[in-house]
Design a binder for these strands. Structure first.
Lengths: 419, 419
DNA sequence: ACAGTTTCCCGTAAATGC
DNA sequence: TGCATTTACGGGAAACTG
């Protein structure tokens, strides 16, 4: 006699942080006859999990029952919104933790259940439904891992609540995955990734075999294994860049001035033979969340020389916005007057024409003080060098594909991390 | 038959933040005969307060009883340490809040009580004692206000628990107060304030009448009223500087390179006739937690010209350490090659001699990148000016007086804010 | 010892209360 | 409405815990 209130469509797992409030809403899609009594809904965390299935157990710290109400703004159906819900971990549940120690916390999927019971014409009916899969984290530092799970789940299954998904996660085709990655950028940074940028990402995952859009990526390779020679996984690296854009590079990114994902080889191929002082902007591949610029100049004998500045990370960028860095960057070679080597944004846009609108208005007058600003400089000693390796080929931007976002009909989650 | 376990000596109020753990320890100074049973101590917050006396009420969220133990490292007396105590505010206690709405939260004094009961030879004895006065805050932004209360209480009363102290707080003699202020700096920043620095502070409080060491300062003038023309009180200003020193200027302050508290008039009097490029370091009087440098230069006709840079605040200083700012500061006047105008720390110490040891080691090589650093610059347009007013006279440093710190015998508090 | 995970708590921002 | 105070929670770091 327990029966799901409604079949639900494709549901996305979302992320909840313990100790941080979230909101969830349940809507009754069937019209009940004669609803003149109160319909109480109770929400429970991980209600139906066989114990031991997940290694961590949580409970709802706050009030978890509420009476349904007629939705004011809609067609009069019943709904209830739980606010200020908060999750807390159950500690020391009979000795030790559950079995699946193989999964990391962000691979562990959970769910919220909703129950209601009512009697109509002498017949008692139990309604029950269950939310989308959820990832529970305890610190925002786990958010990137949580997002990786969300993406992988959405991409690779239509099952509404396969909580064991990460026990044996399927591989993704690069053609699908690259679309999702581009969608991340268009959703959170306002502009997706173009063909060349995606090609570079594919190359990072597969090596030089690139192009092949039906290569497959394993979950592990995507977000768990470190990139060879680096102390972080592919997704951790990519997400650090997404964060950098969101917090410090939004206008520059949206103007499409950041080529960003381009190999060092490609970079050289592009800049070679461009006018001296032509530069492009590229994300660091060696450090998390860094952006650098590379410019070309020519020695007396005509040899191209490529210089890249030490990547700027969030700390530096919060001291000085990136456009201002580009405007003010100076190189001092051997006591000569400092000069800004950045003249043309690749392929040939005069710097101020590209970035002019993005420069910060100059320091306010703070009478009686002399205003002061920070400027980024490099001092060149005549004994540095850089290495040159192989090559490849990119081009202009393309519109990111649309990612199919489906709605969650019956219950609607809202945590700070839900979108 | 309730009797205080021990008279206690001078006790200092300390600061507890709601929701943040603190520790307190009670020691039984009388030796009990035949202690073969467990002596349980219970701690209560604001136990004896007549309701309505304070406007906010709090309770101990965590376990508040514990059994006394023989202190291992000492002479075998009984003691108990409560850890992980946490305070939470009682909400909506019978309608509205208490009466004393006149006091701000940091003026409201509270206390912790400790009770124990034991039976010896058929005689039941209740022991009870009560902690030092306490200030309860809910956000670290209230910490400066809390410290002001702690200082005023310690300075002006010997009463162990006059919780009504701020109902009518006495005035302080400047001679006492200045000693306490200096002690704040020597305790938290490693170096106290000298005679000249204190004179400048006195002047700020009293105006030009200064010198008079028996001037009195009211509690309100010290920490509640704003300085005329400024949006902050004297103590808020001073504390912002203390914080700036603690976080960003410790070595420079301890080397005594920051004159800091010096009026603009005095500054000019000092720098006048010093060699061009002589500078001194001074805290901003117009903004909270700022430090600036002022240097002297001379025009062709020999007139002294004084320049002060826009004060550096914690944000700037966390992007670039202050010593490096001094090392790298450059002024660009009308396209001429940038020059560092700072040559000699007042009175005549060559800059690098003074600050050399404090400079950050130069940027690490980040092959294959060109390392980069931020430098502070000012661009001078030939239309700025500065104002000159009156004068006075400072000199070299003096050792700060010792502040009489008395121990708390019976119970010992420990919160992150207790010292 | 160590890595994965959680807790702690400052500091900013937003919300709340008076 | 404005100011005083509290709550919220990201982010860095420490503590925990197998």
């Amino acid at each position: 006699e327990k029966q799901p209130c409604m079949p639900t469509h494709l549901q996305k797992p979302l992320i909840i942080k313990t100790g941080v409030q979230f909101t969830t809403k349940v809507r009754l899609l069937v019209k009940l006859p004669e609803v003149d009594y109160q319909l109480k809904v109770k929400t429970t965390f991980d209600k139906d999990l066989p114990p031991g299935r997940v290694s961590r157990q949580f409970f709802i710290l706050t009030n978890n029952t509420k009476v349904m109400d007629i939705e004011d703004y809609s067609n009069g159906c019943l709904s209830v919104e739980f606010r200020h819900l908060q999750l807390k971990e159950k500690k020391y549940i009979n000795g030790t933790k559950g079995s699946e120690g193989l999964l990391s916390v962000t691979e562990e999927l959970h769910s919220l259940s909703f129950e209601a019971c009512f009697t109509v014409q002498g017949l008692t009916i139990d309604l029950e439904t269950c939310s989308l899969p959820l990832v529970v984290i305890s610190n925002v530092s786990q958010l990137p891992g949580g997002w990786a799970s969300v993406m992988w789940y959405n991409l690779l299954t239509d099952e509404p609540r396969n909580l064991a998904f990460f026990g044996n996660p399927p591989r993704a085709n690069w053609s699908q995955l690259s679309e999702v990655l581009s969608w991340q950028f268009s959703t959170f940074a306002g502009r997706g990734l173009n063909k060349e940028q995606l090609a570079m990402l594919g190359e990072k995952l597969f090596g030089q075999h690139a192009s092949c859009s039906d290569y497959q990526v394993s979950w592990s390779k995507f977000s768990k294994e470190n990139i060879p020679g680096k102390p972080f996984s592919f997704w951790m690296w990519l997400d650090s860049i997404l964060e950098l854009i969101k917090k410090h590079l939004l206008p520059v990114w949206n103007e499409n001035y950041i080529m960003g994902f381009v190999s060092k080889e490609m970079e050289r191929a592009l800049l070679k033979d461009k006018e001296a002082g032509t530069f492009l902007l590229r994300f660091s591949e060696s450090h998390l969340g860094g952006i650098t610029f590379t410019w070309v100049e020519y020695s007396e004998n005509g040899d191209a020389k490529f210089n890249s500045v030490e990547p700027y990370t969030k700390n530096r960028l919060s001291a000085l916005p990136f456009a201002d860095i580009i405007r003010d960057y100076k190189v001092i070679s051997d006591g000569v007057v400092p000069e800004n080597p950045l003249k043309f944004l690749y392929p040939n846009i005069p710097k101020d024409e590209a970035f002019g609108r993005l420069y910060n208005s100059q320091p306010s007058k703070v009478y009686p003080y002399i205003s002061s600003t920070l400027i980024p400089i490099s001092e060149l000693r005549p004994n540095a060098s850089t290495t040159p390796p192989s090559c490849q080929s990119p081009q202009p931007p393309m519109t990111p594909g649309e990612f199919d976002v489906l709605c969650f009909d019956l219950s609607d989650m809202n945590s700070p991390y839900s979108e």
